[in-house]
Computed example of a mutant assay.
Amino acid sequence: MGPDAHFAYVGSRTTRERGASGEGISIFATDASARHWRHLQTVGDLVNPSFLAFGREQRYLYVVHGDGTEVSAFAIDETTGGLTFVNRVPCGGRNPVHLVASPGGRQLYVANHLSSNVAVIEIAPDGALGSIAQIVTLDGEPGPHRVEQPFAKPHQLILSVDERYLIVPDKGLDATFVFSIERDGGLRATGEPARDREGSGARHAVCIPDGRHVYVVNELDSAVCAFAFDEGRLHPIQRISALPDSFFGFSRAAGIVLTPDGRHLFASNRGHDSLAGFEVDPGSGRLSANGITPCGGRTPRFIALTPDASAVICANEESHGLTRLDVGEAGCLRPAVEIAQVRSPVCVVWKARST
């Protein structure tokens, strides 16, 4: 595929309260390996357009406004990749931090970090966001961290491989919830959440391609927990540190990605400013450490695989840039190379360009 085969959309933080200097949503043309980046547009006048998600057919882009109480919809120009504002609606809570479209594409699920809930928002046929159809409140005993864990704090939403379930890591409760997705797009709890050690702070998750295992990166203790996944239930099988045993400084884990073949997993460390690599045993699902590599910047809040899965892209929030780390032989990461400068970046998503 050519040098402009994909559009990359980069969300950022924009407010002084966050110590941020982002300009909005930055749009680039890239190749499938994301080696070459060409800036196309910046959509400004947005408050903390931090996390981004496409609608089911990638005709619309949905955006949370971090620290606020709203989410927005944008139509995507199939030729230029440009964004046109559609509408903005209340998200049913405070500080929306993540979002994903339902399997049928008729609902948007939003994690409201400071309101301890997940909102289900209707999506109209024209991509516009509608009313709130359901609010699911997450309950449980908060973790022991006196600052970070005062109550439930859902931090991410991912669909299971078979798209029958919504998986929700919760930083405040040291737990990961699973909800069954009903025919009308509504959510129903499958049972008690899976819990990790006190003070772990579950943050983000990925599913292995065969659907049998889920991996959760913990923000507060910088560990990855492996779970067996069966009929909507998570069963812990292993936890492993994402930091070297010689490191004693301050660090918080953030992002997690898994290669499409399910063999190599990576997690980011903010503070240590690195990516931890792990090999996945295809039978047991257990992880083994496979090196820790500097991320090439400061505070890698988000990581993503390139469209062809040949590299990991780091959104380095405090050094205002994106770096690229090639996935080499046996899943080892090669040294980071800066590929684009973006102020306070926190999320990257890709869309294939129409031909």
Score class of each variant (00 low, 15 high):
295 C>E: 03
244 P>N: 09
279 E>L: 15
246 S>R: 13
278 F>W: 06
214 V>T: 12
257 V>G: 09
288 S>R: 15
220 L>N: 03
256 I>T: 05
309 A>Q: 07
224 V>A: 06
297 G>W: 00
237 I>W: 05
214 V>C: 14
304 A>T: 14
236 P>D: 02
217 V>P: 12
253 A>L: 11
295 C>D: 02
221 D>A: 01
215 Y>G: 08
298 R>P: 00
213 H>R: 13
276 A>M: 05
248 F>C: 07
231 E>Q: 14
266 F>E: 09
255 G>Q: 00
243 L>G: 02
250 F>N: 14
243 L>I: 08
221 D>E: 00
279 E>Y: 04
300 P>N: 04
255 G>S: 00
268 S>E: 09
215 Y>Q: 06
294 P>Y: 07
217 V>I: 15
243 L>D: 03
209 P>F: 03
223 A>S: 15
306 T>M: 05
212 R>S: 13
222 S>Q: 07
259 T>K: 05
240 I>H: 09
263 R>T: 10
277 G>D: 13
213 H>A: 14
299 T>P: 06
270 R>P: 00
227 F>W: 04
220 L>V: 03
247 F>C: 08
303 I>R: 10
295 C>A: 08
287 L>E: 05
265 L>H: 12
281 D>S: 12
271 G>T: 09
277 G>C: 13
254 A>H: 01
214 V>S: 12
290 N>C: 11
239 R>I: 08
257 V>T: 14
266 F>G: 10
309 A>Y: 08
275 L>T: 13
211 G>L: 04
310 S>R: 11
269 N>C: 04
248 F>E: 15
229 F>H: 15
268 S>I: 04
304 A>D: 05
280 V>T: 12
300 P>F: 05
226 A>D: 08
238 Q>H: 02
250 F>L: 14
269 N>K: 01
260 P>H: 06
288 S>C: 11
304 A>K: 06
272 H>C: 02
300 P>K: 07
302 F>N: 01
262 G>A: 00
227 F>I: 01
274 S>V: 10
214 V>P: 11
289 A>H: 01
252 R>L: 15
237 I>E: 06
291 G>Q: 08
247 F>L: 12
258 L>C: 01
210 D>G: 00
289 A>Y: 01
290 N>L: 12
209 P>L: 06
216 V>M: 03
227 F>A: 00
224 V>G: 07
234 L>T: 02
230 D>N: 10
226 A>M: 07
272 H>Y: 13
310 S>H: 06
286 R>E: 13
227 F>G: 04
226 A>L: 01
279 E>K: 14
262 G>P: 00
295 C>F: 08
257 V>D: 10
293 T>Y: 04
303 I>S: 11
267 A>N: 12
259 T>C: 09
263 R>Q: 14
242 A>K: 01
256 I>E: 08
307 P>D: 10
229 F>E: 07
229 F>V: 11
259 T>M: 11
277 G>H: 12
264 H>T: 09
244 P>E: 02
245 D>L: 09
274 S>G: 11
265 L>A: 13
228 A>N: 10
296 G>V: 01
208 I>Y: 08
280 V>L: 14
209 P>R: 10
272 H>W: 02
304 A>V: 13
235 H>S: 15
220 L>G: 04
212 R>K: 14
276 A>P: 02
214 V>D: 07
292 I>T: 15
252 R>K: 15
304 A>G: 09
232 G>Q: 02
257 V>I: 11
286 R>H: 07
229 F>M: 12
237 I>D: 02
282 P>Q: 13
227 F>M: 06
243 L>S: 03
209 P>A: 09
